[in-house]
């Protein structure tokens, strides 16, 4: 994974998370998982993925949506779906 791309992507993802959870101090790293963010429930999950699809112009599969359980997996899946 291209480091520059990853850094930029993390920035965009962080903005999306901050908007979703109304928390401007939220810091997103590769290691963040739903366990770290209380409000990251199944409803928020779908919203987050939809926003990421919009921002990167990609489309996750049904399986992707179920399998993404951390930012690391999210980034890898995004690459797989052509975001990079």
């Amino acid at each position: 994974m291209n480091t520059v791309w990853k850094e930029n992507a993390l920035q965009v993802i962080q903005d999306i998370f901050r908007n979703q959870f109304f928390d401007d101090s939220l810091a997103i790293t590769e290691h963040t998982t739903p366990a770290d963010i209380e409000e990251w429930d199944s409803l928020a999950h779908v919203n987050l993925l939809a926003s990421i699809e919009n921002a990167f112009n990609i489309r996750f599969t049904a399986d992707d949506m179920a399998n993404i359980d951390s930012i690391a997996v999210l980034l890898a899946t995004m690459v797989e779906r052509g975001a990079c």
């Binding site: 199944s42 919203n47 939809a50 996750f60 049904a62 949506m65 179920a66």
Partner: peptide, 14 residues
């Protein structure tokens, strides 16, 4: 949105 139906049983697209 069959994908969303399969994943989380949403009735139609977001």
């Amino acid at each position: 949105d069959h994908r969303l139906w399969c994943h989380s049983k949403h009735p139609f697209s977001l």
